[in-house]
Design a protein around this nucleic acid. Structure first.
Length: 434
RNA sequence: GCGGAUGUAGCUCAGUUGGUUAGAGCGUCGGGUUGUGGUUCCGAAGGCCGUGGGUUCAAUUCCCAUCAUUCGCCCCA
């Protein structure tokens, strides 16, 4: 029985071309997020299991967390999300932080689940959070960041849509307007979450079940789920503070050129810790009908650590869904290698050529050396395949004359120059590209 | 946890209505006289036909199981 060459189920190997793409994505993302004044943090991949028991949601802790008992008998989890961790970090310095705190990170997260399109067991997720800003400004800024990220990849606003809702409004509607008790409310939120995927008859039947066949409730619930705009809400809730917050957010977004944001009463989000405005960014490509970014306000999480509450809002965005988005909209660029030049040695010149190679590197060039004994055409082929643009030849004749052929594999041009001239022409090319 | 699809060369896939030595393209490696790629020409290597069991004179092919991949459901960042 030989060893398997496959990576662990639901996890990926990153070969250089994959890593390049990953780096490109997160370099772009970091640039945008930093432009809003966010600073990067990080934390251990392991956390005590009880961190997630508090507020995340039962199913996630019971079935989706990788956990084990360490040698000291501690229950340990591999982090399935970053929000509890960052809340812990803020709580630990609750008194001394300069608010509003703007932090981001790009952790890898693990969840034990069945892999499928857009969902793996390990993924990297951008987390952006703002602590200490209680108003709509926080939610607006986060959506601006999300929008800015997509635009930075060359996306246009028709490629995605921002859906907005308010947990508080949903709670009020379900408990006061519909008069459902906790168990019914839970069942209804789960139903709402997936109602667009179900047939109308199935939804109707499920509503009737949830409402215990109470005709008045069934009617009100059915009506509520058909609401498409704030104006269609029941009259007594049109000016509820939770509704006002949504209206205010939509207003500030459209005043700032974000025209693809809409109120969506079906937007729920799975985590129990959300307390106010919630939003998700969806790919409008039907092949990729998944949420790419999701987040909202979770004012209660920091205070779980026994400190004064901090108003908080944040969002997460996974690398897998983003890559699917970029791919389906053809927004992935060709990413060249970082290697500037391949120095091809001809004959027994290794020691003398090494001095030249060092000179090139001291000038900041990325230089690979081919000292193998393969034939020249094979070496050139390999350089081409690796996407290295320049090839410099070093052999006995060149060393004697101190003139080296530099070949540009794209144009096919080849000229002989001394080392300093070679360095500047490669550097010139590099600044020209960047 | 549930359901569908698929496992043949490094990759993409043919194929065998069950029958000797298993096929292509691409890729890899070597060569087309000794120091120049992307287009060509010649050649070679490389497969327990996912794994285990069953039926059969005979299984890569049919049946069962299992594992893996993948799409969807459940759930959801």
């Amino acid at each position: 029985m030989s060893l398997s060459m496959q990576p662990y189920k639901g996890a990926r190997d990153f070969y250089p071309e994959d890593k390049r793409l990953h780096d490109y994505m997160f370099t772009t993302i970091r640039r945008v997020v930093r432009s809003f004044g966010y600073e990067e943090y990080d934390a251990p991949i392991l956390e005590p299991l009880e961190l997630y028991k508090a507020k995340t949601g039962d199913e996630i802790v019971n079935e989706q967390v990788y956990n084990f008992t360490d040698r000291g008998g501690r229950e340990v989890a591999i982090r399935p999300e970053m929000t509890p961790t960052v809340s812990r970090m803020v709580a630990a310095r609750r008194q001394e932080l300069p608010y509003p705190v703007r932090w981001f990170s790009v952790p890898n997260l693990w969840r034990y689940e069945r892999p499928q399109r857009g969902r793996l067991r390990e993924h990297w997720q951008l987390n952006v959070d703002i602590f200490g800003e209680e108003g709509v400004a926080a939610d607006h800024e986060l959506i601006e960041v999300a929008d800015g990220i997509l635009k930075a990849f060359g996306a246009t606003s028709s490629m995605y849509q921002v859906k907005i809702n308010n947990r508080e409004l949903i709670d009020v509607l379900i408990k006061d307007y519909l008069g459902l008790h906790d168990e019914q409310a839970h069942a209804l939120t789960k139903l709402i979450d997936r109602m667009y995927k179900l047939d109308k008859e199935v939804v109707d039947k499920a509503i009737a079940d949830v409402c215990g066949q109470d005709q008045t409730k069934i009617q009100k619930t059915t009506g509520l789920l058909q609401v498409k705009s704030l104006d269609q809400l029941p009259a007594e809730y049109k000016d509820h503070p939770a509704t006002v917050a949504i209206r205010e957010l939509l207003g500030v977004l459209s005043a700032n050129r974000i025209d693809n944001a809409v109120f969506d009463i079906s937007l729920m989000r799975g985590f129990d810790y959300y307390t106010g405005l919630v939003f998700e960014v969806f790919d409008t490509n039907p092949d990729n009908n998944r949420s790419m970014f999701g987040g909202g306000r979770y004012d209660g999480l920091v205070s779980l650590f026994g400190v004064e509450p901090v108003p908080t809002a944040g969002f997460g965005m996974g690398d897998v869904t983003l890559a699917n988005f970029l791919d389906s909209h053809k927004l992935l660029p060709e990413l060249p290698t970082e290697t500037d030049v391949l120095v091809v040695l001809i004959g027994d010149v290794y020691s003398r050529a090494s001095k030249i190679v060092r000179e090139l590197r001291e000038e900041g060039l990325n230089v690979a050396v081919d000292a193998s004994s393969r034939k020249l055409d094979k070496k050139l082929k390999a350089a081409d395949k690796r996407g290295i643009r320049f090839v410099m030849f070093v052999g006995e004749d060149e060393l004697a004359a101190e003139q080296y052929p530099l070949k540009d594999l794209v144009t096919g041009n080849e000229e002989k120059h001394a080392v300093p001239r070679i360095i500047t022409s490669i550097q010139d090319y590099r600044t020209q590209v960047n």
